[in-house]
């Protein structure tokens, strides 16, 4: 039933946007982290979205219908921010400390965008739910 597939597609969007918000939160939480398991300062993470096909359920129409999934979580290789803090235990010989390459402004914009996209998927889901319940009432 195509309406159930529509719900599954929206659900995949909710999952992907939630993961994106989680990654943005991780970045925001680690804006000042200078020590990580890999060594050195924290590197900003980013999600990569790709389409996920639910083709077989949309057999009558060519092209299929696509949900979304997080294909990869990549590490941002932009240079670290260097601050002059000679008293810091992680300072190098010249007195500079490498701080994460996270820009809080960028992460906030990312979070807001993820929240809006999440809401759009929820709105679609609610309308589809109404459509399904009306379908069940045909002939009553």
């Amino acid at each position: 039933m195509s309406l159930i597939t529509a719900l599954r597609i929206s659900a995949s969007g909710l999952t992907a946007q939630r993961q994106r918000a989680e990654v943005a939160s991780t970045n925001l939480a680690n804006t000042e982290t200078t020590r990580t398991a890999e060594g050195g300062a924290f590197r900003r993470k980013d999600v990569v979205f790709q389409t996920a096909t639910f083709g077989q359920t949309f057999e009558a129409v060519s092209g299929g219908s696509e949900g979304v999934e997080v294909s990869d979580i990549v590490t941002d290789m932009r240079p670290f921010e260097r601050r002059f803090e000679p008293g810091h235990p992680d300072a190098d010989a010249e007195g500079y400390v490498e701080y994460p390459n996270v820009n809080p402004m960028e992460e906030m914009a990312n979070l807001t965008s993820a929240a809006r996209s999440y809401e759009a998927n929820l709105a679609a889901m609610n309308i589809v739910k109404t459509m399904i319940s009306r379908t069940l009432e045909i002939g009553r």
């Binding site: 039933m1 195509s2 929206s10 389409t51 949900g67």
Partner: peptide, 17 residues
């Protein structure tokens, strides 16, 4: 119903490159 599915797919892929 099929159209609703397509619109849902568009909204879901709003951030997909």
């Amino acid at each position: 119903a099929k159209r609703q599915q397509t619109i849902s797919a568009n909204l879901t892929n709003i951030d997909t490159p």
